[in-house]
Write a protein that binds this DNA or RNA. Structure first.
Lengths: 235, 235
DNA sequence: CAGTGGTCTAGACCACCGA
DNA sequence: CGGTGGTCTAGACCACTGT
């Protein structure tokens, strides 16, 4: 791993273990330069990433302030797998793999960037939070990038499978968020009444070489949906 | 303005004017170093910001690819004023200032970070898209930071007033997104039936010195709500 | 005043891509 | 192989903070 990523992860681990409390200051850039034996620009790259991600605030003339701990629940501004969220938030959540099939057509609503897919692996999963069915995910994985998906990977984490098993580098996504009424399938899988509102997040995920990895439609019971976001202003 | 920000704005202007089409490559770092007469790290800072914001994709060994134009509609992952959105998206939108008053209490739901405010200026506004009332915004501005708000500022853009008139530096926000049913006030101002779902975005906005600028509650008709987000994966 | 973070430089080496 | 972007360095100067 690169040096600045090492430092980022190292400090982040300290923050998670609460070695630094909100309101504390991290060691100054100069101190970190000495501690890690790197140049200042390298330290700065790590610290600025922490600031960009909402963990700390850089205050000119004062230092690097630790911000209050945030709860990132279904962040739309991040690309995180459901598994990463569950781990981070320590949710009680289970996962039903409902279907894994090869398909040649994908729903019209998902092809929002004009891009298309010849053939995809469709994965349908249900997430149960605190024992209650809450979310249905439909994934369409580009089968010219991923040739097969074992059920265990769908059960555990597709992202982990792509990144750790297949060595792919997931890089960016475009997400569309709308609120729609529950479909027949929603009602069947989630056991909810008609007219229930659903938060629908449709996304298109790309790899670092800009190739298309997948389309995903994530349908959440609106009454159970909460998202917490951190955003910085870039003028 | 700093050099890297100049370069960022310069290239961004070119992208908006479509001097570069999606699929084109921007000039290489080396070319930009010569064009702008700066060091490579300075060029890189500008280019990486463009990539982070979803305009381009950096491809090792190939170049900097221009991505398809995105429509950022009510992005939760960015801090943008309503005015900036309207301008950028070329929406037909008007703005009713319903109320500007000094208050000493702010709604419980808005104080989600435990922070509090002694005294605030409450601004209530209604946004009409294509002539239809669609959004109600409740702003509570920290009156120890901003002492008065002329109606013209509320009519035009609070952010522009804060940044350009008062010289404040808006830096980050924490946003909570939920879906709730329409309140009595929603129904009155937006002329919608009971049980209509509303997308509610509550945010807390801070300045660069970490001081609290404002709480905002933005209530959108769910059936008119669309958000398009760009997100990069940071592992 | 000393210490902090912000910007910028000139140079180095590397991994990747395409011809 | 030359050109691309990614990382890293050692140093400089600046603006801001607190004492």
């Amino acid at each position: 791993m690169d040096k600045y990523q090492m430092i980022y992860q190292d400090i982040l681990a300290d923050l998670r273990e609460e070695k630094y409390q909100p309101g504390d200051y991290l060691p100054s850039d100069t101190k970190l330069v000495m501690r890690y034996g790197v140049s200042r620009e390298t330290v700065r790259k790590a610290m600025n990433s922490l600031a960009e991600d909402g963990y700390v605030q850089r205050l000119k003339g004062k230092g690097t302030l630790v911000l209050a701990k945030k709860h990132f629940i279904f962040p739309v501004s991040k690309i995180e797998s459901y598994r990463e969220l569950v781990d981070e938030m320590q949710l009680s959540s289970t996962n039903d793999v409902l279907k894994i099939t090869l398909v040649t057509t994908i729903p019209q609503e998902l092809r929002f960037e004009g891009t298309t897919l010849e053939q995809a692996i469709q994965v349908v999963r249900r997430r149960n939070v605190d024992g209650e069915p809450t979310v249905i995910d439909y994934d369409y994985i580009n089968s010219s990038v991923v040739t097969e998906i074992p059920k265990s990977a769908a059960q555990d984490s597709l992202f982990s499978y792509f990144e750790n098993q297949l060595g792919l580098t997931i890089d960016y996504a475009i997400k569309h968020i709308t609120v729609e009424s529950a479909s027949v399938e929603d009602r069947r899988w989630l056991h909810i009444p008609e007219d229930t509102a659903m938060v629908v997040i449709r996304s298109e995920t790309h790899l670092a070489d800009n190739s298309l990895l997948s389309f995903t439609e994530s349908r959440h019971r609106a009454d159970r949906f909460t998202s917490v976001e951190f955003a910085r202003r870039h003028k």
